[in-house]
Simulated assay, not measured.
Amino acid sequence: MTKVDLKKSISAYTAPRGAFEIMDVPPMRYVMIDGHGDPNTSEEYGSAVGAVFTVAYKLKFLSKVELGQDYVVMPLEGLWWSEDMTTFTTARDKSRWSWTMMSLVPEWIEMSHFERAREAAAAKAASPALEQLRMAELSEGTCVQTLHVGSYDDEAPVLDEMHRRFIPDAGLRMRGLHHEIYLADPRRTSAERLRTILRQPVEPA
C-alpha cells in the first residue's frame, strides 16, 4: 500500500525562504478547533492540539484499514487573529490572540469518517476539546506566503514586512485570517531550526 504525503503533492505546502510569493490556495478540508489565549501558557491550547491529533491519527488508521488508502498525518496548522493585528507584530501580545488549530485531511475522508473517529476517541478519553472538534472546508484563494526559519517569536518582523510593505506594494490588501503551517515539531527541533510557512489571504486593494 502506497503512503500518500500531501505535503509533496499540494504546492501550497512549499514556500520560499527570505522572500514572499503570491499564490492561489485551493479549498481544503481540515479537522479544526477554536480557542483563545497565549499558546505557551494556555491549558486550553494544549488540550485543543491534543484533540486534533488524536482524531487525525484515528482517521489515518480508519482510512488505511477500511478504505485501503494510507497517508502521512499532516502537520499542525493555525489560523490566528486579534481585534488589533499589531499584537502579532509591533505590539506583540499573545494573551490577546484567538486561534483555530487544525490539520489537513485527504479529500477522500468523509464527514461520517470524521464523526466515527471522534466518537472512538471520546470513548477512550472524555474531553471537552474532542466535543468541540469539527471538520470543515477552508477556502483561502489568493494568498501571500513565505517560509520562516527560526523561533516563533522571531516571526514578528517578517509579518510586519509582509503586512506593511509587500502586500500594499503589490496593490493588495489583507483579508481573512493569518495562517501558519508548522513543518517542524517544536518538541524535537531547536528554536532556530523551526520551519513555519506564514500565509496571509489577500485581495486587490
Rank of each mutant, 00 (worst) to 15 (best):
A19Y: 08
E21R: 12
I22F: 08
I22A: 11
M23T: 11
D24V: 11
V25T: 10
V25M: 06
V25C: 06
P26A: 09
M28N: 06
Y30R: 06
Y30I: 05
V31Q: 05
V31E: 01
M32T: 10
I33A: 08
G35F: 00
G35N: 08
G35S: 11
H36L: 05
G37W: 04
G37E: 02
D38R: 07
D38G: 08
D38A: 05
D38L: 02
N40G: 08
N40P: 06
S42R: 02
S42I: 01
S42C: 09
S42K: 05
S42Q: 10
E43G: 11
E43I: 05
E43A: 10
E44W: 06
Y45N: 02
G46T: 00
A48G: 08
V49A: 04
V49L: 02
G50C: 09
G50H: 03
G50R: 05
G50Q: 08
A51D: 08
V52T: 07
F53I: 06
F53K: 06
F53Q: 06
T54G: 13
V55S: 08
V55I: 13
A56Y: 02
A56P: 09
A56F: 02
Y57E: 12
K58W: 03
L59Q: 07
L59F: 06
L59H: 05
L59I: 12
K60A: 07
S63A: 15
S63Q: 10
K64Y: 11
L67V: 13
G68V: 14
Q69M: 11
Q69T: 11
Q69I: 10
Q69D: 10
Q69W: 09
Q69Y: 12
D70L: 09
D70T: 06
V72G: 01
V72R: 01
V73A: 12
M74E: 04
M74H: 07
M74I: 01
P75M: 04
L76K: 01
L76A: 10
L76V: 03
E77W: 02
E77S: 01
G78V: 04
G78Y: 04
W80F: 09
W80E: 04
W81L: 05
S82Q: 10
S82P: 14
S82C: 14
S82D: 13
S82V: 11
E83M: 12
D84E: 14
D84G: 14
M85C: 07
M85R: 03
T86V: 06
T86C: 09
T86I: 01
T86Q: 13
T87V: 15
T90D: 15
A91R: 13
R92F: 12
R92M: 15
K94S: 10
R96F: 02
W97E: 01
S98V: 00
S98K: 14
S98P: 10
W99G: 05
W99E: 03
M101Y: 00
M101T: 02
M101S: 06
M102E: 01
S103P: 09
L104V: 07
L104W: 06
V105H: 03
V105T: 08
P106C: 10
W108S: 00
I109Q: 04
E110S: 13
E110C: 11
E110A: 15
M111N: 15
H113S: 14
F114S: 13
E115M: 13
R116M: 15
A117C: 15
R118I: 13
R118A: 15
E119D: 15
